[in-house]
Amino acid sequence: MYRIVFLIISSALLLSCNNSNKDSINLPYYNEPTFTPVFITDEAEIATKITHKIEDFKFLNQDSVFVSNKNIEGKIHIANFIFTTCGSICPNMTRNLKVVNDSLGNDSQIVFLSYSVTPWIDKPHVLKKYKNEYGIESKNWHFLTGNKSEIYKLARQSYFAEEDIGFSKDGSEFLHTEHFLLIDKNKRIRGIYNGTLLLEMYQLIDDIRTLEQENFD
């Protein structure tokens, strides 16, 4: 609930800024699992205060090719967590993320990472079938599988996928979240979205375009 209230308030503020000065629009940083927004524009201050980044990783994708942190170097990426046998939120999440992917025209500087939370089931060939079933042709959208504990640790401690509640969960507890995470070119969290809501996908598209205009190294 607190996140929804924040999004409403921040959206109003951003719209106000947009009317007065388009160049003043900046996305917040999220440096901790409570998802408290931090608004900073000074590059030196960002370097010292925003310390949280996505940790290194290496997993197999749907084509049995290793995808790692090297694949997202200098690129914006969007992460989410699904499983192919999910009959509740995952199909809707995948369809909604496809809307985002399709709207960006296969931009090679934007990467989509869909991590399986049931990797013991979702082997590469299963993920490939899943990707094909949803008509996803993008080469920049990887469905990833690998060691369960490594995926869960990355999800909870790097992406804060279940917000502050997930961060404190035991690693063996099942991971199931509707959140999409927007990560900038320096692997810093810049947005969190409800992947079941199409309206939030339009906000995600706008935020990706905002990030593309940033020039921080």
Score class of each variant (00 low, 15 high):
F57N: 09
F57P: 07
L60Q: 12
Q62L: 01
D63A: 09
S64C: 01
S64R: 11
V65L: 09
K70C: 00
I72W: 06
I72K: 14
E73W: 06
E73G: 08
G74R: 10
G74M: 04
I76E: 02
I76H: 05
H77P: 01
A79N: 10
N80Y: 11
N80D: 13
T84Y: 04
T84E: 03
T84V: 10
G87E: 08
P91I: 10
P91W: 06
N92V: 15
N92A: 14
N96T: 04
K98D: 01
K98Y: 00
V99R: 12
V100K: 12
N101P: 00
L104A: 04
G105S: 07
G105K: 13
Q109L: 02
Q109F: 02
I110S: 04
I110G: 03
V111S: 06
F112P: 01
L113R: 10
L113M: 08
L113G: 05
L113S: 06
Y115V: 00
Y115T: 01
Y115A: 12
S116E: 02
V117N: 10
P119N: 11
W120H: 13
D122H: 08
D122S: 08
D122T: 08
K123V: 01
P124W: 01
H125L: 07
H125G: 00
K129V: 00
Y130A: 11
K131P: 00
K131L: 00
N132W: 00
N132A: 11
E133P: 04
E137Y: 04
E137Q: 13
N140E: 06
L144F: 04
G146N: 07
N147T: 07
N147P: 03
K148F: 03
S149P: 03
I151Y: 13
L154S: 12
R156N: 08
R156A: 11
R156L: 08
Y159L: 10
F160M: 12
A161W: 05
E162K: 14
E162N: 14
D164C: 13
D164Y: 13
I165A: 10
K169P: 00
D170L: 14
G171H: 08
F174V: 04
F174G: 07
T177D: 09
H179M: 13
F180Y: 15
L181D: 03
